[in-house]
Nucleic acid binder design. Sequence first.
RNA 1: GCGCAGGUGACAGAGUGGUCAAUUGUACCUGGCUGUAAACCAGGCGGCCUUCGGCCUACGCAGGUUCGAAUCCUGCCCUGCGCACCA
Length: 390
Amino acid sequence: MKINTDPEKIEKVLNRGVEDVFVKESLKKKLLSGRQLRVKIGIDPTGPKIHLGRAAALRKLRQFQDLGHQVILIVGDFTAMIGDPSDKLEKRPMLSEKEIKANMKNYKIQLGKIIDLKKTEFEYNSRWLKKLNAMEITNLAESFSVSQMSNRRNFKDRLEKREEVSLREFLYPLFQGYDSVIMKADIEIGGFDQLFNLKAGRIVQKHYKMPQQDILTVEMLEGTDGRKMSTSWGNVITIADEPSDMFGKIMSVRDDLVPKYFRLCTDISESEILKDKNPRDLKIKLAYEIVKIYHGEKAAQEAQKSFTKIFQKKEIPEDLPEIIAHKGEFLSDVLVRGKIVKSKNDFGRLIKEGAIINLSIMEKLQTTSYKLQTNLTLRIGKKRFVKIVV
RNA sequence: GCGCAGGUGACAGAGUGGUCAAUUGUACCUGGCUGUAAACCAGGCGGCCUUCGGCCUACGCAGGUUCGAAUCCUGCCCUGCGCACCA
């Protein structure tokens, strides 16, 4: 495999969407050397879907792959059971082996949309971490001092607030670092929230008298509401989202985040981004590009078409969710059953607010005790559509 | 183990016998304005019913006192802090 050492390309890899590189000069030298490097990334199979924030790090990995370097994907099946303390307000619950397996099922398909799986080395870190005995763990633990560990931002904060910090959480960075030892990693990539864990890799490698990996962190991507993208916040856009859904979610991202989204989620150049002055049009372009990456050109066109149709021309979408109902059934029951509304109370509120519209006659539904006789197409609020088939 | 403080709705955090389905902020939902953006304004935000009303379930868990408990008592579980010497 030929290694690409084009300085211009390397510059781009080292800068676009990158928060921090440690140690930059060392990494640059490695990349220019022409040697094939071992580039590691860890994925925590804690959620079944990859969101755009995680995808950003994986895209960075892809860039290394394109330069000809060896990409190593560590599935943190063991560490996921411990729970990563990074930037968590609370400690995470431990995941069972079963849950992890379920999460990993669709993972590879999603990964395949970003990186070249054929050229990727896959490893499950339980393979070696499971076997560590007490003596070896003790030795590993020697690499860190307590003050180093407790100076970590989120440990420190929690300790100051007199919240619980489990000793177990201290183990996480150690194990992640140990992965780097086993894998002989030259570089490790991760989100900026991973900074401590990545640096831990350097410390642990040093402890085992190995050359230290350089680390590269990508910027954190905020979710649709401007807060950090996180599954537990429900503000995520995942790469497995349906095209129209994905398109819509991207359109609801705050304007000021659009350049960042371009930087982290697309290959569009900065100069091209600046061409479009209208923020809405720019965002449409962004949505189009991202949908194109994960679902193809055709899906992107269709998503855009249906978006303009629904929200700019206010038409009814073509394929809306359907619920089967019986004749004479209460509408409220059907909607609760179909999980369109939370409860009958919720339904009652929406009626009172005039939020439910019968699209065939374009009238607001007035009564909570509406009984179904024929098919019915409804719009609830601005973005919920549903068709009820009797 | 002993002592002290604490455990309240998605989260933060009030409330210390009835007026508490529980103040407030955030998040969320709806309407207005819009570009399914932001900001802003208004309303809502446990469940069920025949809904200007009624019922059920909820303030760590289990009991108790009381006409009445998130609030008082007892036990249990969980969290934080303190518990060498000297004084």
